[in-house]
């Protein structure tokens, strides 16, 4: 059974995963048993009762009541078991323990923001304590996304006009992948993140020091790290190719035409405005889809990104 699990299911890293897997296996086993029965009966009948002559006479059997009842009632009982089992597992998945550690999640096209209790924001990297329930309170800043961690068997849509939540308890420290599973446009399939489950004390240390790892870097290197970490390169290439937004390469100091027909020079102020208020000026030929990064990028971060863009010439 374990072998089969490895083949069919991702590793079960949350405390609730085992129950989901047990039901998955139960349905599979019963289904395969019934499917084999139906298929073998079908093949047996086809061979045994194959047409021997054009004058074959077949018996008239309208129906047999006890058979009809049997093959209605047995499946009914089976699905009732599956229904109850599935609902029980579902209530466990929906009942957040009281002592859960809370992280706020904001889904954007096409990156995940994770907001912690001390105000730190991490992008596309979710740090959580292991062996402790974690609750994610989620909202979307634009369209519907969906937060999915296969290893934890949890998924929930992230919706623009309301908060939704999921909870999980990771059994031991490790990494797992987060997918967006509600189609959200161009870079839907690149909208993944990583969950890092840490021992509680390691997590506390990480949270205390969070964000300060960049302070020692020179501005351009800091910018490079941020551009990568914040997923800017999903839409802005660094090699001149055209994606959803203008490429960062050969960008600084150039004249750029806007959708209203006017032209601006790409300087420090233009980049800063584009990060904090992206809809103010839209480069001609590109869609107005970028989210504001006001509040999640500090002034030093923005300085770093500007310096980095300057190096791409």
């Amino acid at each position: 059974m374990n072998r089969l699990n490895d083949f069919l299911l991702p590793p079960a890293k949350s405390t609730t995963a085992a129950e989901v897997d047990a039901l998955f296996n139960f349905i599979n086993l019963v289904s395969i048993f019934l499917l084999l029965g139906i298929t073998i009966a079908m093949i047996y009948f086809v061979i045994k009762y194959r047409r021997r002559s054009e004058d074959d006479v077949t018996p008239l059997i309208h129906h047999i009541n006890w058979l009809e009842i049997t093959w209605s009632v047995i499946p009914l009982l089976l699905v009732l078991i599956v229904f109850g089992w599935g609902y029980k597992g579902y209530t466990d998945l929906r009942t957040t323990p009281d002592d859960a550690y809370q992280v706020r999640v904001v889904a954007n096209s096409w990156f995940w923001e994770f907001h912690y209790e001390n105000g730190h924001v991490s992008i596309d990297e979710l740090y959580v304590p292991a062996e402790r329930p974690v609750e994610l309170v989620m909202r979307s800043s634009d369209v519907i996304h969906s937060f999915y961690v296969p290893d934890f068997r949890v998924k929930h849509d992230v919706i623009p006009n309301r908060y939704t939540s999921v909870w999980f308890e990771v059994k031991e420290p490790g990494e797992s992948v987060v997918f967006c599973t509600e189609y959200c446009g161009f870079a839907h399939s690149d909208m993944y993140a990583t969950v890092y489950a840490l021992e509680q004390n390691e997590f506390d240390d990480w949270l205390a020091a969070a964000g300060s790892d960049l302070d020692d870097l020179p501005p351009a290197e800091r910018g490079q790290v941020l551009v990568d970490r914040y997923g800017c390169t999903t839409c802005h290439s660094t090699d001149g190719s055209t994606l959803q937004g203008p490429s960062f390469q050969d960008n600084f100091g150039q004249n750029r035409e806007l959708t209203d027909g006017s032209t601006v020079v790409v300087d420090e102020n233009f980049i800063r405005e584009s990060i904090l208020e992206p809809s103010a000026k839209i480069a001609a030929g590109y869609p107005d889809i970028m989210q504001s990064f006001a509040g999640s990028l500090s002034d030093e971060d923005i300085d770093g990104i500007i310096e980095y863009i300057k190096t791409l010439e």
Binding site: V20, F24, S31, F83, G86, Y87, Y90
Partner: peptide
Amino acid sequence: MVAALSVDIH
């Protein structure tokens, strides 16, 4: 399988 609530979440 996908009608079973807990499995469908996955």
